[in-house]
């Protein structure tokens, strides 16, 4: 079997999710038995200008230029994988959408801001068809491998549509709320095997919300543990502001 050609690309992001691939260790050797990496800016200097099988794309879309670029990339690949929080849900870049775009540009670029065009932050699937989603900030390597295997075998991969609490309970962690810490686990999509909580950190909601969160019920949770609405909103906004953009699009 000819190895499928795989290329990595990035848009607005920190490239940390791609770094996770470089950090895979020995597992990377097994992965490289299966695929041929033809372009990956972070680890190799070769470029590839022909078509390829799988595009693994990190980052969110924040300029008109990026819109055109992702559309062209989509035409060149058979399978497109949205890779990391920025690509799948907009991620941290989405915080920009809480502000007036001109004011944001002035803050970042000063008096010459008009030369730097910008648009609201969007995840990849707002522009192009996405075949597989690998959520997380950064991505969770066991899930990356799972999705890669699914993509190579031509099988679907469904991101779990239940909360991080499920995986956290299976890991039998002491609940963060019992420790007096506000955790985004109850409304955040699982799939990371409660990676952060297993290691003593709390959930920041980097994988995006479950498809059908109970906003009214979340109020009860806050009341039970004496948490203010603002505190929760700040935490939700860190990764999930683009969700509002999606809600708006649905209404239109």
């Amino acid at each position: 079997m000819k190895k499928p050609k795989v290329a990595f690309f990035d848009f607005a992001c920190c490239e940390g999710c791609q770094l996770q691939i470089a950090n895979m260790g020995e597992l990377l050797l097994d992965v490289l038995h299966l695929i041929e990496v033809v372009e990956f800016r972070e680890v190799m200097s070769e470029k590839w200008d022909k078509d390829f099988d799988i595009a693994i794309v990190e980052g969110s879309i924040t300029t008109e230029h990026a819109v055109e670029r992702i559309k062209k990339l989509r035409e060149r690949c058979k399978v497109l994988i949205a890779y990391g929080a920025c690509a799948t849900i907009g991620g941290i870049n989405g915080m920009k959408n809480n502000f007036d775009l001109d004011k944001i540009r002035q803050t970042v670029y000063g008096k010459d801001y008009k030369y730097f065009a910008t648009i609201k932050t969007q995840p990849l699937d707002a522009i192009v068809k996405v075949d597989y989603y690998i959520n997380g900030c950064p991505v969770y390597i066991p899930e990356v491998v799972k999705v890669l295997k699914a993509a190579l075998a031509g099988l679907p991969y469904a991101v779990p549509d239940y909360s991080v609490c499920v995986e956290c309970k299976l890991a039998e962690n002491v609940c963060m709320y019992e420790k007096g810490v506000t955790c985004m686990g109850p409304i955040t999509r699982a799939g990371c095997n409660s990676w952060c909580i297993n290691n003593g950190n709390l959930c920041y909601g980097c994988r995006g919300m479950v498809s059908n969160p109970n906003q009214n019920g979340a109020k009860d949770v806050m009341e039970k543990y004496h948490i203010s609405v603002d505190a929760i909103k700040n935490k939700m906004d860190m990764y999930n502001t683009c969700r509002e953009l999606k809600d708006e699009q649905k209404k239109r």
Binding site: Y162, V210, G217
Partner: peptide, 10 residues
Amino acid sequence: RCVACANCTN
């Protein structure tokens, strides 16, 4: 009220 965290069943 339920947030469907599934803690009850797990």
